[in-house]
């Protein structure tokens, strides 16, 4: 495992992902395609665990991906590399706070990034769904969860718990 590639890739994630929460997932998905550091199945596990453990999801998933790739040293490097761009930007921008937020270019950039983030997350969902499309049980579970979410908005942990219990129940009873 080449640590320089790991640092470089996670630095890019920190610099180019916008929109919090799951915004880093499209990048991690891309890494699994390009380098094969982890399988799609493992990526789903990483996202699940990052969502139910304390701490920011984007950081947790970087920690986990780094660990998968090259052990504890890798998880430390991946986590730090992802944060360094933020650190540099926060220091720079703290000095010109107001000007930055009201700049026309920044506003246009943020307007542009909204549809792009939607498209990126949708395309990752499609990619993760593809191997499961003929798994009838998974599709029923997925549709049930989506219907539940229409009734009322719940915490991510709610969906994880319901789906996890369902998964265990299927192993026991079917």
């Amino acid at each position: 495992m080449n640590y320089f590639i790991l640092i470089y890739e996670f630095f890019k994630i920190g610099l180019f992902s916008f929109g919090g929460g799951y915004a880093t997932i499209p990048f991690l998905y891309h890494l699994s395609e390009v380098y094969g550091w982890y399988t799609l199945q493992e990526l789903k596990q990483m996202i699940a665990i990052a969502s139910v453990t304390p701490g920011p999801v984007g950081i947790n998933v970087a920690t986990y991906a780094g660990l998968k790739t090259s052990g504890i040293l890798g998880s430390g490097l991946a986590t730090l590399s992802e944060i360094i761009p933020s650190f540099i930007l926060v220091i720079l921008i703290s000095k010109i706070l107001k000007k930055f937020h009201e700049s026309f270019i920044v506003k246009s950039l943020l307007e542009t990034l909204k549809p792009i983030s939607c498209a990126m997350l949708l395309s990752v969902s499609v990619g993760l769904l593809r191997p499961q499309i003929f798994d009838i049980k998974a599709m029923i579970l997925l549709i049930t969860l989506l219907i539940l979410s229409y009734k009322s908005k719940k915490d991510p942990i709610f969906y994880m718990v319901i789906a996890g219990i369902t998964g265990i129940a299927i192993k026991i009873f079917l």
């Binding site: 699940a48 997350l121 949708l122 265990i168």
Partner: peptide
């Protein structure tokens, strides 16, 4: 394995919900 299968499916639901929210 069952647990991971379940939460893996929930992850896709969560991603789709995030898209809807955005």
């Amino acid at each position: 394995q069952g647990l991971l299968w379940g939460v893996g499916t929930a992850v896709i639901a969560l991603l789709l919900l995030t898209v809807r929210e955005m």
